[in-house]
């Protein structure tokens, strides 16, 4: 029955039309508007928006925050994936569930939770850290932590299924041939997961650059100090300042590049 339905001309056209208009309304139109406004305001405005000192700082900070978060999540993600795929230990199922938590928890809640733990005045560790001269909240470290949190599952969820599917045979064979755990990781595990890892990293990069909610709460949003590009876009939009469209275009282009990267990686995955 479903086959016949799909073959009939009217429904095929209806489906096609529906799908296209859905994408058009949700994606093409808004993104197109942002580009249109940017073009309208001209090249000069574009250059100005990107070269203002707060923009330059915001780009640098975004690079540092997203870069660090991706690095940490890559190391941590591969570690956790290996842990979950290769070892039995108490609390494994809990860990497996916790990994997915960031997907379902609102980033704003993440931000507040981090303040509860690391906040200067009321947090658990806050006063200790302050005495040690380390700023977490309202400083880049807190922003990195928040970004790490929201992007946490991406690497794990890409790498874990590949590890599970591959099984332990190759690693055990390498072991019997004399390879130490580090040699096994570099020579066997890493090549096995490399495409899944690359995919997870690209997703993490995209997610980390785009993060807004959690970072907004923990950053303090100080222009020129703790303001990432997304926060700056928000400020420009809120204050009807120039630059919101131009910076948005840059973010969209970066996201598009990530998608292109992914489309190159995808065919290799699972091969």
């Amino acid at each position: 029955m479903p086959d016949q339905l799909l073959k009939s001309r009217p429904s095929r056209w209806t489906l096609r039309y529906l799908a296209l208009s859905y994408v058009a309304v949700l994606v093409v139109l808004p993104v197109g508007m942002v580009f249109w406004r940017t073009v309208q305001q001209g090249w000069r405005a574009f250059v100005d928006a990107l070269t203002s000192s707060e923009s330059v700082h915001a780009f640098q900070l975004t690079a540092v925050v997203a870069g660090s978060a991706v690095l940490i999540n890559t190391v941590f993600g591969v570690g956790v994936a290996i842990l979950l795929a290769r070892y039995r230990f108490p609390g494994k199922r809990v860990l497996n569930l916790i990994i997915d938590l960031p997907v379902s928890v609102s980033p704003i809640v993440v931000g507040f939770a981090l303040i509860l733990v690391f906040g200067f005045r009321t947090g658990w560790f806050g006063p200790t850290l302050r005495d040690a001269g380390i700023n977490i909240i309202f400083a880049p470290p807190g922003m990195i932590l928040a970004t790490c949190f929201v992007a946490l599952p991406l690497v794990v969820r890409e790498v874990l299924p590949v590890l599970q599917e591959t099984g332990v045979d190759q690693e055990q064979a390498a072991r019997s041939l004399g390879a130490s755990s580090w040699q096994r990781f570099v020579r066997i595990t890493l090549p096995t997961i490399k495409w899944a890892l690359a995919y997870g990293v690209v997703l993490s990069v995209a997610r980390s650059i785009g993060e807004f909610g959690a970072v907004k709460v923990v950053s303090g949003n100080v222009s020129g100090q703790t303001q990432t590009v997304t926060l700056l876009v928000d400020q420009h939009a809120e204050q009807f300042e120039n630059g919101a469209y131009q910076l948005s275009v840059v973010l969209i282009v970066v996201a598009a590049l990530c998608i292109v990267a992914i489309s190159f990686i995808r065919p290799h995955e699972g091969s």
Partner: peptide
């Protein structure tokens, strides 16, 4: 180690923070 890495990094970059 992953946790320490996170916090360690956080600590390192805090000098460049506010």
């Amino acid at each position: 180690v992953a946790g320490l890495a996170a916090i360690g990094l956080a600590g390192c970059s805090s000098s460049s923070g506010t």
